[in-house]
Design a protein around this nucleic acid. Structure first.
Lengths: 346, 346
DNA sequence: GCTAGCACTCTGTCTCTCCGAGTGCTAAGT
DNA sequence: ACTTAGCACTCGGAGAGACAGAGTGCTAGC
């Protein structure tokens, strides 16, 4: 693979990304850093096409990169530009201050900023929520026979669920129950909350059992709810305005976002770019991917361990040279923010 | 306005709603309950067009109802069919059991069911959240110097917010503060929580003041957050597949949903149908409405008073005869469910 | 007041042509 | 051996005309 051919590939990608039109040999010959004639470029492009890196929409049109072309571009030819201080500040200003106080809020704010700035959809999943630990359980009366169970984990996640009982609890019962739950559940990892464990809890409650079992049931459901990986998606609407994606596909994605979870979870380290063609091949069981799309995924960390993944879904024709640094900056920033929080705890 | 003309209007609407094609005089003459020739119908249709009830996309095409045509149809000619038992059961089955336990959950579940069954977008706002009353305030430590404020209202709404303090609180301080807040805030209506009131609270706290003021600040923000009317929107994506609406408009709506709040809040009683033309006229300051759309709004009640509004946004070409009964059934059902809850409380 | 008949109008579709952009190939030049 | 100039070729898109079909308005007769 010639150096000049790589430069031509890069030129095609850059040009196509900005104009959206198939790019011809003349347009490339006109570029300042290419000093050969259009005929030579035609020859090279024919070779690049044979290698599967470029393709022609039809015989007498210019060339367009294939997903393999993009891959090689990202790997070999992409300008490795970092972000300017201005850009960093701009990104920073998109985080609201108190979003950083909870991981949920942080992810929410990061995905929405990322979607805004890339004009793509931004996605995130938290990794391994089943390993977080219960830090607080509380039962709060909110109405006649109506109670809210409140569950807080060490990661700072908060969830609640309403339950209706057959009878009302008096203060003593409520206190007993709260103390009972705290005693048995505080510090317990979510993954240890099996149905059997709850059965044991119920029997251990003795006389209160019958009255309180709906609460225990609710608590079980709440814990299941909490250990489910949470998928955050923001800005899917941005995809609607980009005309190389079919609205049909996007609507299907909106209705069925969970299908991308396995794909997200598949990426191991660093920034990873995956095209819809890849996804179709590697996850054929998935009912659906958005055609002509690409997905860029990175990890954010907490104490050095992957704590979740953050990514972008956009058209294949995307300014990777800009978008990838954005994603890198965001994952880095999130890692710092949640680790900073962690530092405070110790 | 002739009776026959009304029948013809109704026929045009029905036919157009099902086929989506402009309907001609012959098609109407072929209907069983119309016993005049196509020429007569042509004459009548010309009159209906002059009245602004029908219009022609172009000279040699059939007629299409205008929004005024739809209005008259809904008012005068629509078959007032109730729902069959089958349909009611189908709707009932779309509510999950525990959704009914909180108003939020109920509205979430209702809008999503309504969107699903009408293939439109479903919207809801709660009315007058500022009049609900604080039933519980709690401060829960979740990490080093990190606290969560929990606020529960009499309506069963639950919200929380994380706060970071300068110093940690010991148990005594925490208990004091919780007791202090409960004493001063329990039973207070959200609308009474003015900044001045919080100022008084802060000074009343005396020695604790400096330490705790971020919490008070957080509490204030939380209460402001809670008295904001909550807009629930579900199934906007359904609109994307209906081709008389411009995707551009829908995207704008997605980005800017709040603009419909004043329109929703404008409807007073019963079911109200409003077309984008109306909205443009009555709310000209609104930056945007979806073109060719209609919005159907009803109220749900609690103790006989309007507690919120539930509505549908869809294309103007909509099967009103089906959709309106659906909406009626839903508002009725919600009213019963939240009033049933209320009954329990008393 | 209704209806049959007729001329008219307009759209959507199909075909044909033409233009231009871009290619591949060949032959000549370095 | 590589590069370049030149040329014939291909293909899509735009534009013009022709045509069929649906639907109308109008007039004359029942």
């Amino acid at each position: 693979m010639d150096d000049r051919k790589l430069r031509i590939l890069a030129a095609v990608v850059d040009e196509y990304v900005t104009t959206g039109e198939p790019v011809g040999s003349k347009a490339i010959a006109a570029l300042p850093d290419i000093n050969v004639s259009s005929a030579t470029i035609r020859n090279d492009m024919a070779v690049l096409e044979q290698l599967g890196l470029l393709e022609q929409p039809h015989t007498s049109a210019g060339r367009v990169p294939t997903f393999q072309g993009y891959k090689l571009y990202i790997e070999k030819c992409m300008p490795g530009a970092g972000l300017s201080e201005d850009e960093k500040q701009r990104l920073d200003s998109m985080f609201t201050d108190d979003a950083a106080l909870t991981e949920d809020g942080l992810i929410q704010s990061a995905t929405s900023a990322l979607a805004e700035i890339t004009k793509c959809a931004a996605v995130a999943v938290n990794a391994m929520p089943q390993f977080s630990v219960i830090s607080k359980v509380e039962v709060i009366p909110t109405g006649k026979r109506l109670y809210v169970i409140l569950l807080i984990t060490s990661a700072g996640n908060i969830k609640n669920k309403a339950c209706r009982l057959e009878f009302d609890l008096n203060d003593e019962q409520l206190q007993f129950f709260t103390a009972f739950l705290t005693e048995h559940l505080h510090g317990v990892s979510l993954s240890d909350l099996s149905p059997e464990m709850f059965d044991r809890l119920v029997t251990a409650m003795g006389a209160y059992m019958a009255t309180l079992s709906p609460l225990v049931q609710g608590l079980y459901e709440l814990s299941r709810d909490m250990m489910r990986q949470e998928l955050t998606v923001n800005g899917t609407r941005n995809l609607l305005t980009c005309d190389e994606l079919k609205t049909q596909d996007i609507v299907e994605f909106m209705e069925n976002q969970d299908v991308i979870m396995p794909i997200l979870n598949d990426t191991f380290s660093g920034i990873h770019v995956m095209f819809s063609e890849d996804a179709k091949r590697e996850h054929p069981q998935q009912t659906f991917v958005i055609g002509n799309s690409s997905m860029i995924v990175g990890q954010y960390r907490k104490d050095g361990k992957t704590a979740g993944r953050l990514g972008i879904i956009g058209p294949m024709r995307l300014n990777y040279a800009k978008v990838i640094p954005y994603l890198e900056y965001f994952t880095e920033k999130i890692s710092n923010l949640i680790s900073e929080k962690e530092d405070d705890d110790t």
